[in-house]
Deep mutational scan, measured.
Amino acid sequence: RGFLEKAAVKKMAKAIMADPNKADEVYKKWADKGYTLTQMSNFLKSKTAGKYDRVYNGYVIHLD
C-alpha cells in the first residue's frame, strides 16, 4: 500500500510541476487524506536533491 501511495503522490507532484495551477486542488486532496509533512517528505524523496522541494514547500504553506 505504501508503495502505491508513494507512486501516486509522485505522479501528482509531477503534475504540479508541469502545471502549477493544479497545486491547490492536489494539496487539498493530500490534506483530506491526512498526509503529514513527514509522510510527504518520505513520499517525495528523490535521487535528485531538491527535485520536489517546490511541491513540498507549497504543501507546507497549504497546511499552515
Rank of each mutant, 00 (worst) to 15 (best):
A31Y: 11
K11V: 09
A31C: 13
G2I: 09
S41P: 01
G34F: 04
A23K: 05
N57P: 01
D24L: 11
Y56D: 00
A23Y: 03
Y56V: 07
K45H: 07
K22G: 06
D32H: 10
D53W: 07
A31R: 11
W30M: 02
K10S: 04
V60W: 05
I16Y: 02
G2R: 11
M17W: 04
A15R: 10
N42D: 14
R54C: 15
L4M: 07
F3V: 10
K22H: 06
W30E: 00
Y56F: 11
Y35C: 05
M12V: 04
I16C: 05
A49P: 15
R54T: 13
I61Q: 12
V60R: 12
A49T: 10
Y52L: 03
K22R: 10
N42G: 10
M17A: 04
Y27N: 01
Y56Q: 02
V26R: 02
D53Q: 10
V55D: 00
A18Y: 08
Y52H: 02
V26I: 12
F43Q: 03
T36N: 06
R1H: 15
D53C: 11
K47C: 14
K14E: 11
G58D: 06
K11D: 06
L4A: 09
T38H: 12
A15E: 13
L37I: 10
P20M: 05
N21W: 09
D32R: 11
D19F: 07
D53H: 05
I16V: 11
L37E: 06
K33P: 00
R1Q: 15
M17S: 04
D64P: 04
K33H: 09
L44F: 03
K14V: 08
D32K: 14
A18M: 09
R1E: 15
P20G: 07
I61S: 12
A15W: 06
G58A: 04
D24F: 13
V26H: 03
D32P: 01
E25C: 14
T36D: 07
N21E: 13
K14C: 13
L37N: 04
L44C: 02
V9N: 03
K14M: 09
W30Y: 01
M12P: 01
T38Y: 10
A8V: 09
L4F: 09
G58M: 04
Y52T: 01
T48E: 12
G58P: 02
P20C: 11
V9K: 00
W30P: 00
I16S: 02
A13H: 00
L4P: 05
D64W: 12
Y59I: 02
M12W: 10
N57E: 11
Y52E: 01
A7W: 15
R54P: 10
T38M: 13
L37Q: 06
N57V: 11
L44S: 00
W30N: 00
Y35R: 01
S46C: 13
D24V: 10
A18P: 00
K28W: 04
K28L: 06
M12F: 05
A23C: 11
P20I: 08
E25S: 11
K29Q: 12
N42K: 13
D32N: 11
N21V: 07
R54V: 09
A18D: 14
A7D: 04
K14H: 08
Q39Y: 03
F3R: 15
T36M: 03
V55Y: 02
A8C: 15
E25Y: 09
M12S: 07
F43H: 04
I16T: 01
Y52A: 01
N42C: 15
A7S: 11
D19G: 03
H62R: 03
V55G: 01
N57F: 11
L4K: 14
K33T: 11
K33M: 11
A8N: 09
Y27W: 02
V26P: 01
T48V: 14
A8I: 10
F43T: 03
D32W: 07
K51E: 10
H62S: 04
K51A: 07
K33F: 11
K29T: 13
N57T: 08
V9A: 04
D53V: 07
I61F: 07
F43N: 02
Y27P: 00
E25R: 07
I16R: 00
A13C: 05
R54K: 14
L63D: 02
D19R: 04
T36Q: 02
D53S: 07
K22D: 04
V26Q: 05
L44V: 01
K6G: 10
A7P: 04
K22W: 05
D24Q: 12
K45N: 10
Y27H: 01
R1K: 15
D64L: 15
D32T: 09
I16L: 07
K14A: 11
M17L: 13
Q39R: 06
K51T: 08
P20Q: 07
A31L: 07
G50W: 04
L37F: 04
E25G: 06
E5W: 06
E5S: 07
K51R: 05
Y59H: 00
G58W: 02
E25T: 08
A15P: 01
G50I: 03
G34H: 05
G2T: 06
P20Y: 09
Y52K: 01
H62W: 14
K28H: 08
V26N: 03
R1M: 15
K10Y: 07
K28I: 08
Y35I: 06
K51W: 07
M12D: 15
H62K: 04
L44H: 00
Q39P: 01
A15D: 09
G2C: 15
D64F: 12
T38N: 09
K47F: 09
F3A: 13
A15I: 13
T38G: 11
A13V: 05
K10A: 05
L4H: 12
V55F: 02
M17I: 11
D32G: 07
D53P: 01
D64H: 11
N57W: 14
H62E: 02
V9G: 02
K10T: 10
Y59M: 01
P20F: 07
K51Q: 09
T36G: 05
A23M: 06
K29N: 10
N21G: 12
N21M: 10
Y56I: 12
K29M: 10
D53N: 07
I61P: 01
D19C: 15
A13E: 03
L63E: 02
V60K: 13
A18R: 13
K47A: 09
T38K: 13
Y56P: 02
G58N: 04
P20R: 06
V55P: 01
I61L: 14
N42F: 12
Y27L: 01
V55M: 02
E25K: 09
K28P: 03
N21P: 06
N42P: 01
L4Q: 12
A18T: 10
K33V: 08
L63H: 03
I16H: 01
T48H: 08
N21L: 12
M17Q: 05
K29C: 14
A18E: 15
D24A: 13
P20A: 07
D32E: 12
R1S: 15
K47T: 11
K10G: 03
V60H: 06
Y52F: 10
S46Q: 04
S46G: 08
D19P: 00
S46W: 09
